[in-house]
Structures are given as structure tokens and as C-alpha cells.
Design a protein around this nucleic acid. Structure first.
Length: 295
DNA sequence: AAAAGCCCCTGGACGC
DNA sequence: TGCGTCCAGGGGCTTT
């Protein structure tokens, strides 16, 4: 799954072929993904024009001329494949390796746009989903309400994070993974941000807050680290894991700059350190950190 | 209310 | 080659 930088990369890839275009055909090759498709999903999409393709946290939203909005989540293994009308160029947008030998097996949804482009959604694990909602349903929808701030907007401040962390008993890893506080971080970028902020993931979220509730120096470092790592990742086109065959520019490049994620046993990159990166488990997810640089 | 588990699903890597 | 086990970028739902 794609975390915020990957979803933003997907949005940038899809926007040129979808914005301003109509759905001329919609094919669902199974009745559900994580959830059943909305009733008459394909029928309601057909003929609708995409007025804008936006992102909220890890969600993609296609705003439609009909007043409805197509809400899409990529789950862990969702990706989009674009085939342009002239069929000369196929670009893979997303994060998961194409199934060797059976590329169609997990192609669950196919959009044909009025410009002739075909947009295929595949998702082997089917943790992703697509829902068609009215404008008033969006804000109150259980997936969207309660979602925290966008980490790349002006709302992400040390004051905000300190206030959110105040009185919490969870550790930093769980606090940052919780989408109700900051929306869009996932396992990779939480690990990377905590490394950059020199904070051990098992520390309590309370280290971000002074006794009066204000932000600590650690909190200031963390906020800067979150902004930096997300911005750098988006600039690099996101991270692509388990797919080293694509060299056409669609695959992300940020994974080569990981300091800790997936680097268990490898030396810390900080100059003068070189300690082996450690892996541990928190809430059933892997956590990577440098035992020397992160305290 | 907050925090911690459990579960959804498929496939790849690894050990025997 | 064929198991069995563990792991994977998320998050909704249920239980404590």
C-alpha cells in the first residue's frame, strides 16, 4: 500500500487521462473488492465526466459531473495500469509487480474513458475498494470522518501534534500510524520519519508534549521529519517495492533512499554510526530503527 | 474513550 | 517438486 506519496504519485499519473473525460465504459470483473461495489456502480459511472481527481490521505476521489464522487482506496496491493488509446504506450502506475504469466488475474475493474484510454485497477489482495457516494455522504462517511490532518498542509504544526499526543499512553509508532491524528502515513514513512527525528519507535507519544501541553524539541524535529520525508518521496515518485523490473519512469525511486525500512542487519547510514539496523514488531507490523541514533 | 487484537486476502520467500 | 510457515506498503471491526 501505498502510503500518501504513492497515492499522490498515482493521482498525478491518472489525472491527465481522466480529468475532463467521461467514463464511456466501466467493467467490474467481480462483485466486490474489500466491500461490494455500490449498487449499479458501472451504470452510474457511465457517461459521467470527471471534473477533478483529488487525494485525501490515502484516498483518491474522482469528482463527477453527476454530483457523485468515486472514492477509491488502494489497500495494500492496489495499482492502476493505463493504456493509451493508440495502444503504443503502456505505463504502469502503482506499486505492485504484475503477476508473472497471468496479468489479467487480478484486474478487477476496467475504465474506458472518452479519450479511448483504458484504466485498469488490479489488486491481488483486494484490501482496496471503490465506492460511489453523494457529496453529502462523503464528509460523513465512516471512512472519511474522523480522518486527521493532511501532513503536507499548513495544519501540521508542532503545536497540533503536541496537543494530539497529550495524555496518550501509546508509543510513537502507533500514534503516527493512527490516521485520526495525521492522515496518510503508513509503515514505511513512520519508520523513516522517526529515524530522521532520532526517536525510537517504542518511546511513548508523551515525549512529544511538555507538562503544560506545548511541543518538545523532539516534537519539532518529528514534524520537520514528516514533512521532509513525504515531500522527498513524492518528488521521487514514491516507493516501489517488490517490483524491480519496471524502468520506464513509472516505478518510484524513493525506496533506494530508505534509512531503515527493510534494512534489518544493514549498517546505519548516518556518518560515524554504522550500527546494524534492527527490526522489531509493534501491533503486528514490522518496525525498523537504529539502536544507536534513535533514543 | 482509548488501546490492543483479530481479521480480511493472495502470493512470494524460505526452510525442510 | 511439494509442503508448511512467515511476511507484506491498510484499516475496519470487536473486544478489553
Amino acid at each position: 500500500m501505498p502510503e500518501l506519496p504513492e497515492v499522490e504519485t498515482v493521482r498525478c499519473g491518472l489525472a491527465p487521462v481522466m480529468e475532463g473525460e467521461k467514463f464511456s465504459d466501466v467493467l467490474c470483473r467481480r462483485p466486490d473488492l474489500r466491500f461490494p461495489f455500490s449498487p449499479k456502480f458501472a451504470e452510474r459511472l457511465r457517461g459521467a465526466r470527471v471534473t477533478a481527481l483529488t487525494r485525501r490521505a490515502k484516498y483518491l476521489l474522482a469528482h463527477l459531473s453527476t454530483g457523485e464522487t468515486l472514492l477509491m482506496h488502494l489497500g495494500m496491493s492496489g495499482r492502476f495500469l493505463i493504456q493509451l488509446a493508440d495502444n503504443l504506450e503502456a505505463r504502469q502506475i502503482g506499486t505492485y509487480e504484475q503477476e508473472i504469466g497471468s496479468p489479467e488475474k487480478h484486474a478487477h475493474v476496467v475504465f474506458t474513458m472518452s479519450n479511448g484510454a483504458q484504466v485498469t485497477y488490479s489488486d491481488p489482495r483486494r484490501f482496496g475498494y471503490m465506492l460511489l457516494l453523494n457529496a453529502d455522504e462523503i464528509a460523513s462517511h465512516r471512512m472519511m470522518k474522523g480522518l486527521g490532518i493532511e501532513p503536507l498542509g499548513n495544519e501540521l504544526t508542532a503545536d497540533y501534534v503536541a496537543a494530539r499526543a497529550f495524555g496518550r499512553t501509546t508509543d510513537l509508532k502507533a500514534f503516527l500510524m493512527d490516521q485520526r491524528h495525521i492522515a496518510g502515513l503508513g509503515n514505511i514513512y513512520v519508520c523513516e520519519a522517526l529515524f530522521r527525528a532520532r526517536l525510537r519507535p517504542t518511546r511513548k507519544a508523551a515525549v512529544l508534549t511538555k507538562s503544560r501541553g506545548g511541543p518538545t524539541a523532539a516534537c519539532e524535529r518529528l514534524v520537520g521529519a514528516i514533512r521532509d520525508v513525504l515531500r522527498e518521496a513524492i518528488d521521487a515518485g514514491g516507493s516501489t517495492l517488490r517490483d524491480y523490473r519496471q524502468a520506464n519512469g513509472a516505478a518510484g525511486a524513493f525506496q533506494s533512499t530508505f534509512y531503515v525500512y527493510g534494512r534489518e542487519g544493514e549498517p546505519c547510514h548516518n556518518t560515524g554510526c554504522g550500527r546494524a539496523i534492527r527490526r522489531t514488531s509493534q501491533a503486528g507490523r514490522s518496525t525498523f530503527y537504529c539502536p544507536s541514533c534513535q533514543r
